[in-house]
């Protein structure tokens, strides 16, 4: 490791985390499957392909507008599977509980896990519970892992993005990050902002039903749309150009971002997906997305323009152009 100690910034989804994962972790544990660093590992069993993923949840506070740690722990893993083009099937559930957590809180979290699993049509099939002394964990931490079966015939990976592709998103950016930070800091805004936390597997499946040429799905969680598109641009070695006027942000989230000094492009989402597909199919995909409950505000936000250095650029509202860079350090800790 470059640094002597782990800093919060190492968990931020930005360059430092990419270095930690890419150098320190892959350096010891790298193998062809892990090295792909997709949202899910893709495992081949004969002609069947299984997606396998894991995610840990340490959000603080445990409950926020539009969701809680339980819902998040199901949606996060379900979405990672869905972004690999898989139908999520089974989840594992690991709890690390702090001594003294109220039973009622644990039950509320379990109920929300149940409801989210039901909506996503996945089953929790194995689990583990550990309790640690008071003060050693912040209420509860949850880990979920999941497996799903990848739809035959689809090939979804960041490297597939190529010039001539359109970039779409299924709605407003930044609501999750703003909802959690508002709850944590006791901030209130004129319009209440709810987390977008949602399982996206049904939406992803509908998109693949109308367009089997989708090149890439990614959920812009930590580091937001900016970090995710930079990762895609880097892996595919392409230039992605976005149009500021087309970026969907709710007025409430925009106001909150202005006040807090955040850029909505960098604020985490938990119910958003980026879709990269050939431009000529973009309208069809967009219409399908807009007809889904989790895609009403979908928009085409940019294009993949050329091969070369992986970079994301933004055409500003007033006709200028700027870089949309990978975020640095930890912007919003403990958001998921």
């Amino acid at each position: 490791m470059k640094e002597e100690r782990v800093l919060l910034a190492h968990g931020g989804g930005g360059t430092m985390m990419h270095n930690l994962v890419g150098e320190t972790i892959l350096g010891k544990l790298g193998n062809p499957i892990l090295n792909a660093l997709g949202d899910s590992a893709v495992l081949e069993f004969g002609d069947r392909r299984i997606a396998f993923t894991t995610d840990s949840f340490v959000v603080q506070p445990l409950f926020f507008k539009g969701g809680d740690i339980g819902k998040l722990s199901v949606c996060g893993t379900v979405n990672d599977l869905a972004m690999a083009g898989a139908r999520p099937l089974f989840l594992s559930l690991g709890f690390i509980v702090e001594e003294g957590l109220e039973g009622e809180i644990l039950e509320r979290i379990l109920e929300s896990i149940r409801a989210a699993a039901e909506e996503a049509e996945v089953r929790v099939v194995t689990g583990d519970t550990k309790v640690v002394e008071k003060g050693k964990a912040d209420g509860i931490y949850i880990n979920t892992s999941g497996v799903g079966e990848i739809r035959p015939g689809v090939s979804i990976a960041a490297e597939n993005a190529k010039p001539g592709d359109a970039v779409l998103i299924n709605g407003n950016m930044g609501d999750h990050g703003i909802a959690v930070i508002s709850e944590r800091e006791g901030l209130s805004f004129e319009t209440e902002i709810c987390s977008d936390c949602a399982p996206l597997n049904h939406l992803a499946s509908r998109i693949l039903d109308v367009c089997d040429e989708v090149h890439c799905f990614r959920d812009p969680t930590r580091g937001g749309v900016a970090a995710t598109l930079n990762a895609i641009a880097g892996q595919a070695k392409v230039r992605i150009e976005l149009f500021e006027k087309d970026l969907p942000v709710s007025p409430g989230a925009r106001g909150a971002c202005d006040l807090l000094g955040f850029d909505p492009l960098y604020v985490p989402n938990e119910g958003k997906m980026l879709v990269i597909c050939p431009e000529e199919r973009a309208e069809t995909v967009l219409n399908e997305m807009r007809s889904d409950g989790y895609g009403r505000d979908s928009a085409i936000i940019g294009r993949v323009t050329e091969e070369g250095e992986g970079v994301v650029l933004l055409h500003t509202r007033i006709g200028g152009m700027r870089i949309v860079d990978m975020p640095y350090g930890e912007q919003l800790p403990r958001i998921c």
Binding site: D263, I318, M321
Partner: peptide, 9 residues
């Protein structure tokens, strides 16, 4: 100024 690319124009 930087974010909006004002120098460019």
């Amino acid at each position: 100024i930087a974010r909006n690319g004002i120098r460019d124009i």
